[in-house]
Design a protein around this nucleic acid. Sequence first.
DNA 1: CGCTCTCCCCTTGCGTCACAAGGGGAGGGC
DNA 2: GCCCTCCCCTTGTGACGCAAGGGGAGAGCG
Lengths: 115, 115
Amino acid sequence: MDELDVSLLRGTLDLLILKAVSWGPRHGYAVAEWIGEATGESLLIGEGTLYPALHRLERQGLVEAEWGLSDNNRTAKFYALSRTGRRRLQAGSSSWHRFVEAAGRALRAAGPVTA
Amino acid sequence: MDELDVSLLRGTLDLLILKAVSWGPRHGYAVAEWIGEATGESLLIGEGTLYPALHRLERQGLVEAEWGLSDNNRTAKFYALSRTGRRRLQAGSSSWHRFVEAAGRALRAAGPVTA
DNA sequence: CGCTCTCCCCTTGCGTCACAAGGGGAGGGC
DNA sequence: GCCCTCCCCTTGTGACGCAAGGGGAGAGCG
């Protein structure tokens, strides 16, 4: 009943990261923490998953990175949501919900054709 | 507003295929058709996606294949859900819904900490 | 009889991605 | 001085969705 082994994180991770920085800049480590908290520890992403994803999003211009100091006085790279990133987050969320709704309906279907 | 380009089909496809054959044997082509219908044409999977997936599921013992004749009198390979396949479908569906619920909650979150 | 259309099967190659496993540096308490 | 936590990164590997290819066999139609 703990973390899900499900590998369907695919495609959802980017959205979650964008969401994590949608209220202001956050550094990578904090992004991972937020995702963990926000999903009730259901989704724990490793650093080998997180950082490549952040770099990917940066390369796509969806987030912008800048070095700074964390609350604990540690050097950290802060990521901020760009304008296109925000649009992407909205569009992506919408797509995501539609996809999930469609698939969920199919998975809950009772009969083959119900004819 | 048509088909979704989203690549988060990852991990969901297997479940949909298992569901498609959960009411009795179905051949590959028909599986793809059912998924299309059941998702309101939101999810249209190509043959290059479908067949490898079917073979994968067969290799894992979740479905069993057998040659037969389709409604149109064509030679076709029918896939039937095995016992372990059915268990997998139930467990997978449950995991899927929990995952989706957790991620959905995070994506809909209003504030960072609401503190 | 040939033609074409639909149905139904398959494979190879490519790009992407989650993940495990590795490595490093710098602050702060003891 | 030591270790723990925080915070960054990379390389390699396996898995997978997908486009693009190829083929064969039934059925309507001229």
